[in-house]
Design a protein around this nucleic acid. Sequence first.
DNA 1: CTTTAGCGGAACGGATCATTCCGTTCAAGT
DNA 2: ACTTGAACGGAATGATCCGTTCCGCTAAAG
Lengths: 210, 210
Amino acid sequence: MTAALSGRKAQAARNDEVILAAARAVFIADPGAPISAVAEHAGVGISALYRRYASKEELLRKLCGDGLDRYIAESEKALADDRDPWVAFTAFMAALVDADTNSLTARLAGTFTPTPELYEAAVRAESLDRAIYARTQPHFRDGIVVEDFAVILEQLTSIRLGDDHRTTQLRHRYLALMLEAMHRPSAQPPPLPGPPPTVEELTDRWRRAE
Amino acid sequence: MTAALSGRKAQAARNDEVILAAARAVFIADPGAPISAVAEHAGVGISALYRRYASKEELLRKLCGDGLDRYIAESEKALADDRDPWVAFTAFMAALVDADTNSLTARLAGTFTPTPELYEAAVRAESLDRAIYARTQPHFRDGIVVEDFAVILEQLTSIRLGDDHRTTQLRHRYLALMLEAMHRPSAQPPPLPGPPPTVEELTDRWRRAE
DNA sequence: CTTTAGCGGAACGGATCATTCCGTTCAAGT
DNA sequence: ACTTGAACGGAATGATCCGTTCCGCTAAAG
């Protein structure tokens, strides 16, 4: 073990975070991953997990709640952003892509029974969305609705190619395209961010998962 | 059993198709579905499956191959389409969304070891893509590459909301948006096809899968 | 020198599947 | 009529996977 810093409690407190981070990473990569994979990734035993969470479901709920909180935080930040509404909106969407908060909510939803708190948070998130939508509305192309946000984010989340960094990069690429389509037509479109997907990236998928 | 038509062989021949259709439906809905689910959906016993395919993998390969063939057929049809290249391209993408061919190739890829034939088909599909791309190129916004096709299709495939019909409808909605973004800027965008996603559709996801 | 929180990891028990196997049915041939 | 065997239904098998529990061990705290 790493030892070094002070007592057992310090170590345990550190583990709290290590475990959560591992769980996030593992379940984002594979929502159906076993508990043991989380323990392994965190470099701890299974007991360390069960000491903190009574069951797998409880851990999933925790992760999902954190994801929702993050989403809400980004929404509030976006609402507080007093730049041009369209600029604020694009920043908002970009932040959501970076936070990858969608993988922890929509992706995990349905794999556990939601708690009332979770439900309330979802309601709150939705109302924030509506506020952002209302403010950005004049800049949207006709026909765009709030609900489009969620579906578009889900589409972007479905992109998974290469490592984490590359994945994020590609998501930004298609986010940019989507934003252009959502935007009330302007003059010249800006160049797409990041290099486009390459053939190898695409064909690598055919390699059997080991 | 249904009886009615002629002899055993006729019945068996009919089962060939019933089984393939069931397998397509089941694995599109859930790529990890058990073999027994296919049998059930087809209304036959498990033996009927194993009589035709030596293993689950063989069935998956067959499905994947059929999907690729379909993809190739659509590509050829698109290349033969002598309308305006951009019109032909949008029709091409729409046909791919309707065929849902992506669920049977990309989605199943990695769950079995590919055969040389499968690989050749993939190569052929890729070269057809290139031809379509080359022809449509002048109509694309700067920065669009062939490889974007695949990633965009995958994103659309990831949409799964409500029943099959609704899912297809929504995919067309976001395909339309994407096409607008890919298109060299024109005048007024047309209205988006089909009703936008609704709140219930989105929140229904939180219901636990049974 | 105890005590015990925190932990590692093997062991348990249930569930899920792909695959095999056995008995049945019925059309076709004799 | 009787035999045969292709086509099948579905239970049984055997392996794997996974959530959870349990049994020590370690070392900080008192």
